[in-house]
């Protein structure tokens, strides 16, 4: 059985075919090794990055952009959004700062991607 997929690892978007007949999947069409990793993971369990925003108490910047520290299973994205939407930031932060440890399972942290400063 051949499964077609488009690699989403980079904007090139290689069109790949994955043959699942043998013990190991045979992947064709990828132009780099990231495509192999993506295809193997996609068969096992599709993972996605989640980026969104959280509320702040800042008068001029009401939202702070955030991401997760790693990709999470695709089917848990909406549940993760529900958890992140409870977060409110009321302090200075820089891109890379951990806002919440274990926001979606113990190993996944919520990371600021923007900066916020309460100094006038």
């Amino acid at each position: 059985m051949n499964k077609k997929m488009i690699c989403i690892a980079c904007p090139r978007g290689c069109a790949m075919t994955v043959n699942l007949e043998g013990d190991e999947p045979v992947i064709r069409g990828n132009q780099c090794s990231r495509g192999l990793d993506y295809a193997r993971q996609e068969i096992l369990q599709p993972l996605r990055m989640l980026t969104t925003t959280v509320k702040t108490t800042h008068p001029d910047y009401p939202r702070l952009p955030v991401r997760l520290s790693c990709d999470i299973p695709k089917d848990s994205l909406l549940e993760c959004m529900r958890l992140i939407n409870r977060v409110r930031v009321d302090h200075d932060c820089l891109p890379g700062d951990v806002l919440v440890s274990g926001v979606a399972g113990e190993l996944v942290n919520l990371i600021a991607t923007g900066d916020l400063s309460y100094d006038a």
Binding site: M5, I6, C7, I8, C10, P11, G13, A15, R48, K74
Partner: peptide
């Protein structure tokens, strides 16, 4: 748009 965005923004 880019094909990867069709996959990760629409199909997903």
């Amino acid at each position: 748009g880019l094909t990867r965005n069709i996959v990760q923004c629409l199909e997903d």
